[in-house]
């Protein structure tokens, strides 16, 4: 990329034509954003790394049906990672043998502990996780995209195969349910 301007549609097209460098550049670009997102939804950093990685493997495996939103694969990755995070062991099962065979920098570090230290700073995250699990997958995806990641409702609707009106209604109800859940958890 000499120009410094990266057109992701072009990169995605090249990746789909078996250009490994194009695909890994998508990984480089979006890894941290997806990782930060998943950290809010799972219990520890190891799980977040595996969910993030699995979402990129899924991006490749399901490339024929990936929908770009705002000319980017990021929304698809966020939604897919969110769905995998709902049931980490099931969502990463396809890649379990691979993940277990790969080296880590600190194999001995207690990832769970790191995660607890991190999350105690913000107890509402725990409620958020619980509330997200309570929602139907489509509604959870809507909350992820619109509330947490600031995409427009119409963009989220495109990705999830909903009409804009249906997406607004579902989002409104989902927010209501989450608000109720958070209130109950605090009292």
């Amino acid at each position: 990329m000499d120009t410094g301007v990266v057109n992701e549609v072009e990169v995605w097209t090249r990746a789909c034509a078996n250009d490994g460098r194009a695909f890994t550049s998508l990984f480089d670009t979006h890894r941290d954003r997806v990782f930060r997102h998943v950290l809010r939804l799972v219990d520890n950093a190891h799980d977040a790394e595996e969910v993030t990685s699995a979402s990129f493997f899924e991006l490749w495996r399901r490339r024929a049906s990936v929908i770009l939103v705002s000319d980017s694969v990021l929304p698809w990755l966020l939604v897919t990672a969110g769905n995998i995070a709902r049931n980490v062991s099931r969502g990463t099962r396809r890649y379990r043998a691979l993940f277990d065979s790969l080296q880590r920098a600190d194999a001995t570090a207690d990832a769970e502990q790191i995660a607890v230290d991190h999350f105690e700073d913000d107890e509402s995250l725990g409620y958020l996780k619980a509330a997200m699990k309570m929602l139907k997958p489509v509604d959870a995806s809507l909350v992820i995209l619109v509330v947490l990641e600031d995409y427009a409702v119409t963009e989220a609707a495109t990705l999830l195969g909903l009409s804009a009106g249906a997406a607004r209604t579902r989002l409104h109800r989902a927010k209501g349910k989450m608000r109720q859940q958070l209130t109950e958890a605090r009292t």
Partner: peptide
């Protein structure tokens, strides 16, 4: 809040596995 980063060693391994899968599907 302590910053948690993606394990760089694990990331490099994932990256090269992705590269291999995309480049040589056959």
């Amino acid at each position: 809040m302590k910053q948690i980063d993606f394990d760089p060693v694990f990331s490099a391994a994932i990256r090269s596995e992705l590269d291999a899968r995309v480049t040589a599907p056959t």
